[in-house]
Amino acid sequence: MDSNNNESNDSRRDFLRKGFVATAAVATGVGLLETACKDTKPKTGDKVKLLSPDGKIVEVDSSMINPAIPDSLLSKHNVREGVPGKKFVMVIDLSRCKNAGKCKSACSKMHYLPDNRSYIKINKMQDSDKASPYWMPTPCFHCDNPPCVKVCPVGATFKLTDGIVGIDNDRCIGCRFCMVACPYSARVFNWDTEYQLNITQMNEIKPHAACSTHVTGTVEKCDFCPTQTAKNELPDCVQACPNGVFYFGDEVEDVVSNGDETVRLSQLLKDKSGYRYLEDLGTKPRVYYLPPVNRQFPFKDAEVPPDAEGQTTHQSGH
């Protein structure tokens, strides 16, 4: 493997960069450019090479190795294949969301995003002028006919067998076609090189391997927390929600759970008129919504944070 990898320190945590990429980059004479573009973050430490059970050499930042976590499962997880035999699905109950924002902060925390940034958004929506507004959390919908995956020129975003739309940040060229192709604005871009985490911060928050990594100039998005789901644990947004808004589960089992209740997916969608946002686009999202009827909370507008303004409302497509 390639020890030159140390110089391109563009991932803060689960550094599963394939040595091939770096080797080929140097071989094609673009190593110089790579050095010019590399992030200005301080090095987090030495890289350690590990041999995974399926014979792949993976390289991990030494600071990532935390012996307290029995995560031997993780090294088996192929980023491009997904958990066999599963089809992950999410149901979001809009009648329960009051914009508590816990899903967002849990997402930011577990994906090492800055506080003001997360892969899940909570949007104020209003179906018509006379209807009451409601909050609609939007993660990535992990569509079965994904427009983002269709347009990716290099296969940096792809569909996994378990339904998840994954991203390979070591493959992504940063053309942002997937971002304009996504009708749900689910994707975010790593615009700058400033955002960084030091070792202490990283040790405080247990790392997820196999999640989206943060590489400057590449696209990121919600990944349904594959490390959690591989261990049969609910994604962090689901666990963090105090109101049980998110149900997560396996479509094959036809069962979803929000941590408190476990219900039949088909029954839940039938009983509560589940729908998918902008169904007529034909993207076949894996995220369903339950309409905001019989609400648990009256709608209360959010206090506009100082850095955000101009909250606009919008009609939803159901």
Partner: peptide, 22 residues
């Protein structure tokens, strides 16, 4: 316009013919 211009060669190494960019 590319976020990672040094990866331009990915277009040739990993190009997906399904993408209008290609």
């Amino acid at each position: 316009d590319m976020g990672r211009p040094e990866r331009f060669w990915h277009l040739f190494a990993f190009g997906r013919i399904q993408s209008p960019i290609l």
